[in-house]
């Protein structure tokens, strides 16, 4: 059981001072899947990953990784890799020394893959880590995360500071290596479009709560935006669940959560309406994270506080 579902989270809560960073989280992660852990900054992504990797601990609830509580359990920890977005390295360390350490601790470490990635990212091995650019620092984390081949690997906003080329390298290498060595991978991100096609499953967290936990497939093409004359649009969408409305004079643009059949699509075009599919990013912003758009000032302060948590 624990081999197919290496990570099980039950009723986990965590509070920092008066901020609820995690609120009764229930979750499970299966083996051999790429997950997207999506949410705004401060939504609780890092707190959740910290607890899953034994770097943090919950106030309430239970976390099991490979059947054990990961906190202080060496046997479990050795099968997990989590490099923080704000990872600290020993002051005097040069990049190659960080990789040397990683090779010591991660049992599945693949030195050849590490070397290839280092070449791909053009990482200066002999430079001190604290002198690296933000992008190079992210690349160090990406190299460790990929080359560790840990059975459960977390990537925390891995693309920060990486340019388009480097990000593409990361995505390509990730898909390639995952195909050959399937494992549980969690991509934590607040940018969704770039990674959307890589994900098999999407988990969205908002203000410490899991607000969506679905297969990516069920979300692709699940919503569509219809625009045209306001009255025509209104008539067409009458029976569908509306996610979002925009209007400009006599024109309206309405997003509905509904898969349209080819016949329905044809009908819409016949009415002079334009259809455009909603991207995962838009869908997520409009549904799961939409609640926060009109958040009260108190809630906004609360969220800002949880940034620091």
């Amino acid at each position: 059981m624990s081999e197919q579902t290496p990570v099980v989270v039950r009723n986990v809560s965590k509070t920092f001072k008066d901020v609820k960073a995690l609120d009764d989280v229930d979750l499970q992660l299966d083996s051999h899947k790429i997950y997207g852990l999506l949410g705004r900054n401060g939504a609780g992504k890092t707190t959740l990953m910290s607890i899953l990797t034994g770097q943090g601990f919950p106030d309430a609830g239970e976390v099991k990784v490979f059947g054990h509580t990961p906190f202080e359990h060496d046997g479990t920890l050795s099968r997990i890799c989590f490099i923080r977005e704000s990872q600290k390295y020993p002051d005097e360390y040069k990049a190659f020394q960080a990789f040397k350490a990683a090779a010591l601790f991660f049992e599945n470490w693949d030195e050849q893959l590490a070397q290839e990635l280092i070449a791909d990212f053009n990482l200066p091995l002999k430079r001190k880590i604290k002198k690296l650019s933000r992008g190079q620092l992210s690349a160090v984390g990406v190299v460790i995360g990929l080359a560790s081949r840990a059975e459960v690997t977390f990537f925390d906003e891995p693309y920060l500071g990486l340019d388009a080329v480097a990000r593409q390298i990361f995505y390509d290498r990730l898909v390639e290596d995952f195909a050959e060595y399937p494992r549980t991978i969690v991509l934590s991100s607040h940018l969704i479009d770039e990674v959307a096609n890589l994900l098999e499953h999407v988990i969205i967290i908002d203000s410490g709560r899991i607000v969506m936990d679905e297969d990516a497939e069920s979300l692709q093409g699940a919503a569509v935006t219809i625009s045209g004359k306001a009255d025509v649009v209104a008539e067409f969408i009458a029976n569908y669940p509306v996610i979002h409305r925009d209007s400009l004079g006599a024109l309206a643009s309405v997003s509905i959560q509904q898969r349209l059949t080819p016949a329905q699509q044809a009908e819409a075009r016949e009415l002079g309406l334009e259809l455009s599919p909603m991207s995962l990013q838009q869908l997520v912003v409009r549904t799961a994270m939409g609640r926060n758009v009109l958040a009260t000032p108190q809630e906004q302060t609360k969220e800002r506080a949880s940034w620091n948590a």
């Binding site: 034994g54 060496d74 920890l77 020993p90 601790f105 991660f106």
Partner: peptide, 20 residues
């Protein structure tokens, strides 16, 4: 001071328990 402040956060990223 250094052994702790600088290498403890790194050791956490290396999936090392606090005890170890």
């Amino acid at each position: 001071i250094q052994a702790l402040t600088l290498t403890f956060p790194f050791s956490q990223a290396m999936s090392v328990s606090r005890r170890s």
